[in-house]
Design a binder for these strands. Structure first.
Length: 197
DNA sequence: CCCTGATTCGC
DNA sequence: GCGAATCAGG
């Protein structure tokens, strides 16, 4: 494989998005992360401030700004990161969870395509649910192809839309999910207190 | 151990 | 220019 314009473009894009070299390499295919890093350097964009190479971040030559720290802004999470406009859906093996999870999207689901197996949401420990919420913020938001044997395969969102991704956090050894998701995926068949019908 | 990027250097 | 090997970390 060689660095065609398209591939370089993809590289630039993903790199500026903060993707890791290994993930970029996987996405491009035919190259290793080393190759990606090497290219990144040759392109002179090792500094992810993907801007013009001009800016020389040196001495502002200013009197010491006595910024007291009035109202520190909470730094809004990069929630609105634009998803890759690549609607590719490889037909690889679906990382189907053994015990279908329940993506807690309380909101209404667009409907249309079949959703991933969603079991009757039993009651899951409030703690587990909470940690799941937490995790979704830190999730790697991996695409189907980025999943490995040690990335959490918990799906989030509607597969029929672009707003769909996999947790991607480190899995609990052996399990297909990270700790938080294991917590909600594997529930003992305890108290079924619904009346037998 | 898993992962990250950075550098070197023979090709 | 390329990227495997290596280095230096988290």
């Amino acid at each position: 494989m060689s660095w065609t314009d398209e591939r370089v473009e993809m590289l630039k894009k993903m790199w500026s998005e903060g993707q890791s070299a290994s993930r970029i390499a996987k996405e491009l295919g035919g190259v290793t992360r080393n190759a990606v890093i090497g290219k990144v350097h040759r392109l002179g964009l090792s500094n992810r401030t993907g801007g013009t190479p001009e800016a020389e971040p040196e001495a502002p030559a200013q009197a010491a700004p006595p910024a007291p720290d009035p109202a520190p802004e909470p730094a809004a999470p990069p929630q609105a990161a634009e998803p890759a406009p690549e609607p590719k859906r490889p037909e690889t093996e679906e990382p189907e969870p053994t015990v279908a999870p329940t993506p807690m999207r309380k909101s209404i689901i667009p409907a249309g395509q079949p959703l991933p197996p969603q079991p009757s949401a039993n009651e899951i420990s409030a703690e587990a649910l909470e940690s799941v919420r937490e995790v979704e913020k830190k999730a790697k938001r991996l695409g189907l192809m980025e999943l490995t044997e040690r990335t959490c395969k918990w799906p989030v969102g509607d597969p029929a839309t672009e707003d769909f991704w996999f947790c991607g956090l480190p899995v609990q050894t052996g399990k297909p999910y990270c700790e938080a998701h294991v917590g909600v995926a594997f529930q003992p068949m305890n108290n079924r207190r619904d009346r037998k019908r």
